[in-house]
């Protein structure tokens, strides 16, 4: 027997909850708001007329290629201020197979020390 009830249950996770109904309602509301906002637009909008051209304080419009903000330009300030972190990270990724294997050996060595030596020390204490 298929019943709707398990679908409508809330999703308890200890302290939070999750209900599909709330989210369905929220999505519908958001969709309606979007439709209404779209309706506010002017009816006489026409494509490929002067209306669609950008107005840049009287300056001529750039080429389309230049108007688009490229992927590496986004978050420029963020990456610039944290340059030391990203530099170190980039230095880590050498693209060299030997280094990949070396990282494996390093991790094995650290785990050996932590698990074996550390455990014996803890046992001694």
């Amino acid at each position: 027997m298929f019943t709707l009830e398990p679908l409508l249950e809330t999703f308890q996770t200890g302290s939070g909850f999750w209900s599909p109904i709330i989210w369905i309602v929220a999505i519908i509301v958001a969709f309606l708001v979007a439709v209404i906002l779209r309706g506010f637009g002017k009816k006489e909008y026409k494509e490929k007329t002067g209306q669609t051209q950008a107005f840049l304080s009287g300056n001529p419009e750039y080429e389309k290629e230049q108007m688009h903000i490229k992927g590496s330009n986004l978050y420029w300030g963020f990456t610039e201020s944290l340059e030391w972190v990203f530099d170190a990270l980039k230095k880590m990724h050498t693209g060299n197979v030997s280094d990949y294997a070396l990282w494996f050996v390093i991790v094995v060595a650290i785990l050996f020390i932590v698990l074996i030596t550390g455990e014996n020390l803890m046992g001694a204490i």
């Binding site: 880590m92 990724h93 693209g95 280094d99 990282w103 494996f104 991790v107 094995v108 050996f112 698990l115």
Partner: peptide, 19 residues
Amino acid sequence: LVLLIAALAMKAGVVPMHM
């Protein structure tokens, strides 16, 4: 145990063996 965890983690792409 160490070898198993490290090798399988490397195959699963765990940092710093993710490269």
